[in-house]
Each structure stands twice: as C-alpha cells, then as structure tokens.
C-alpha cells in the first residue's frame, strides 16, 4: 500500500464542513415541514374521492405514486434539468428543497393516511355529541392519537431527508456532501473528506434520533410511550 492518508487538510476545513452540516439540516427541516403540510393535504385528498374533489383525488394519487415509485435522484434531476428545459431555472438550494419536499410529501401522505384511518370514526362523533366543536374534536381527540401513530415514521422520514439531501452534491448544492466534494476536488483527498463527512452524517442522525426520543418521552408520557 503506497497511499498516505492526509487528514490534516480535512481537519483544517472542519469549521466549513460543520457550517455545511447546518445547510444540510436546514434544507432537510424545511423539506419536512413543507412535506408534513402537503402530506396531510394529500392524505385527506386521497381519502375523499367524491364529487368536486375527484380531480384533486386523482392528482393526489398520482403525486403519491410518482414520489414513491421513482428514485429520488430522478426527481432531483427533474426539478433541476427538467424544469430548466421549460425555462424555469431554480437555484441548487431550491432544486434540493423541491425534490425532497415532493418525495417526503408522498411518503408522509401514506403514513398520515394510515394514522388517520386507524382512529375509529365513532370517536369523533362521540366528541361532537359531548358538545365539542369540530376543530376542538380534531385538536383534542384526533390529533394526539394520530401524532402518536405517526411519530416513528415521521422520525424515520426526517432521518431520510437528512440522508437524501446529500444528493444535493449532484446538482451543485454545497451542503455537507457537496462541500466535501468541492474540497476533495481541489485536494484529491476524496477518501479522507468523505470519511470525515460520513462521521458527521452519523452524528447528525444520532442527534435527531435522540431528540425524537426525548420529545416523544415528554409529550407521550403516561400514554404508554410510542
């Protein structure tokens, strides 16, 4: 083996890499927030197939199936080159955000649908007959139970979003993986840079899982946990 590992240049770039990790977190968190809103909407639309909602129901189904049955990388290239061909040029950040949101919304919609369908309709009727208004019944009865049902899949999806955002390096977005690639291309220390970045991703994922467990412990206390 006549290769000498050079870790020094990588460690000198550590502050920049850690800042790039914040970009990774930022794009992933934004995508998850947008994904939750759109995913809820898609789930409700998929469950209602009557009357005027019919075209929207079809739209929601296509979105969900496309997001779940094609590679994220293809979705990313679509928001990059695909829209570019239509004259719509998004910034690298927007490309990653749009693709991750599209993907997360599709996966979360199915999780939310499962979570919503697992609550018997009679519960809502019982709440209403006790004099609760519809928003109150949704907020106090439906929401806490659904939240508990989807907590695990939601946590997984956040982890996924962080991992998937690394594909940003293929469309020129300099988040964690993108920065590693940029620095590696200038120094030819590809292995060293990516090894350090792998460690940072690992720590990020562990932090998210720990945070999720902590929050779950706080809000689901006394309900038998998640």
């Amino acid at each position: 083996m006549d290769y000498n590992f050079h870790w020094q240049p990588v460690f000198r770039r550590l502050p920049e890499l850690l800042l790039a990790a914040l970009d990774t977190l930022q794009v992933a968190v934004l995508a998850i927030i947008l994904g939750i809103i759109l995913g809820l909407l898609l789930a409700v639309l998929k469950m209602n197939a009557t009357g005027k909602l019919k075209p929207l129901n079809w739209f929601a189904r296509s979105w969900i199936e496309l997001a779940r049955n094609t590679p994220v990388l293809l979705q990313l290239f679509f928001f990059g080159f695909g829209l570019g061909a239509l004259g719509l040029h998004l910034s690298p950040f927007m490309i990653v955000l749009a693709a991750l949101t599209f993907n997360c919304a599709g996966y979360l919609a199915e999780n939310f649908r499962g979570g919503l369908q697992s609550i018997p309709e009679t519960q809502l009727r019982a709440a209403r007959s006790l004099g609760m208004s519809a928003p109150k019944a949704y907020y106090y009865i439906l929401f806490p139970q659904v939240l508990r049902n989807v907590w695990h899949p939601l946590t997984n999806q956040i982890v996924w979003a962080v991992l998937m955002s690394s594909l940003g390096m293929l469309v020129g977005y300099q988040e964690l993986a993108g920065s590693a690639q940029y620095f590696a291309s200038r120094t030819y220390r590809i292995f060293e840079y990516f090894a350090v970045v792998a460690v940072i991703y690992y720590i990020l994922v562990k932090l998210i899982l720990a945070l999720s467990r902590l929050v779950a412990w706080r809000i689901f206390r006394g309900q038998g946990g998640v």
Binding site: L163, S166, L170, F191, F194, A195, Y201, Y202, V205, K206
Partner: peptide, 13 residues
C-alpha cells in the same frame, strides 16, 4: 445512518 452515495464514494475510492 450514512447516505448511500457517501458509502458508494468511500468504498469505490
């Protein structure tokens, strides 16, 4: 816990 693309690049290199 590590992006697949990073695993691929690391292994390949």
């Amino acid at each position: 816990s590590i992006p697949l693309i990073i695993q691929l690049v690391l292994f390949y290199n």
